[in-house]
């Protein structure tokens, strides 16, 4: 995920030092509980960005402790950020662990795909419960941004649950087909490769 671009975006508002960036990110997503990022990750990313020439240390400050570097965007950094805004973000749902578990379990005599589905559903409902609870606890004054983020998560879980239900309904049908093999692709095999590539997708995966 693009913590990298989030840092560029935050620096575009104003120059900040590393610790400041960490706080700003947490405030943005609605707290540590929602999307936790540790400070070390911020620093690593910053140094990588500096190497790439997208940010520069502009000033060293000393506030009664160790030096702290304040970073700001370079011209290249600004351009990278603009490119990011301009491009679409990739959908990554085709890389799905549950899918793998189920399809493999279908062919594995020791595993039970129904059980996998049932476990997965329980997990998803738990998550849904948690997110719904959190969402309902946000008061009217809470930043809209935070609500939107939770809504997004909730919607994804709903979609997953729907998919799970559909899969469960077709489990029987699936078990009568062999696991898709490389040499001889069949009907019924999930068509992973045919998902559309959208412009700008290549630049989007670094978490």
């Amino acid at each position: 995920m693009s913590v990298r671009h989030a840092i560029l975006g935050l620096l575009a508002h104003e120059p900040r030092h590393g610790y400041d960036l960490h706080g700003a990110f947490e405030a943005l997503v609605g707290g540590r509980g929602v999307w936790p990022v540790n400070p070390a990750q911020i620093y690593t990313t910053l140094s990588r960005l500096e190497e790439a020439g997208l940010v520069v240390k502009s000033m060293t400050r000393r506030v009664g402790g160790p030096d702290q570097n304040v970073f700001e965007l370079t011209e290249a950094g600004r351009e990278e950020l603009d490119r990011w805004y301009e491009s679409g973000a990739p959908s990554m749902h085709q890389r799905d662990e549950v899918f793998l578990k189920i399809t493999l379990a279908v062919a594995d005599d020791r595993a039970r795909p129904e059980r996998v589905i049932s476990r997965q559903r329980a997990t998803l409902y738990r998550d849904l419960h948690e997110l719904t609870t959190r969402r309902s606890q946000l008061d009217t004054e809470a930043p809209l941004a935070h609500k939107l983020l939770l809504d997004k998560a909730i919607m994804h879980i709903e979609a997953d649950l729907r998919w799970l239900e559909m899969t469960e309904a077709r489990l029987h049908e699936m078990s009568r087909q062999p696991v898709p093999e490389r040499e001889k692709p069949r009907r019924g095999r999930p068509r992973v490769t045919s998902i559309d590539k959208r412009p700008g997708e290549e630049g989007g995966d670094d978490t």
Partner: peptide, 17 residues
């Protein structure tokens, strides 16, 4: 489904992270 894991896991599994 009540009292489950933290929201972080939830978010993660939701594919947001």
């Amino acid at each position: 489904i009540a009292n489950s894991d933290s929201a972080r896991d939830a978010m993660e599994r939701a594919g947001l992270l």
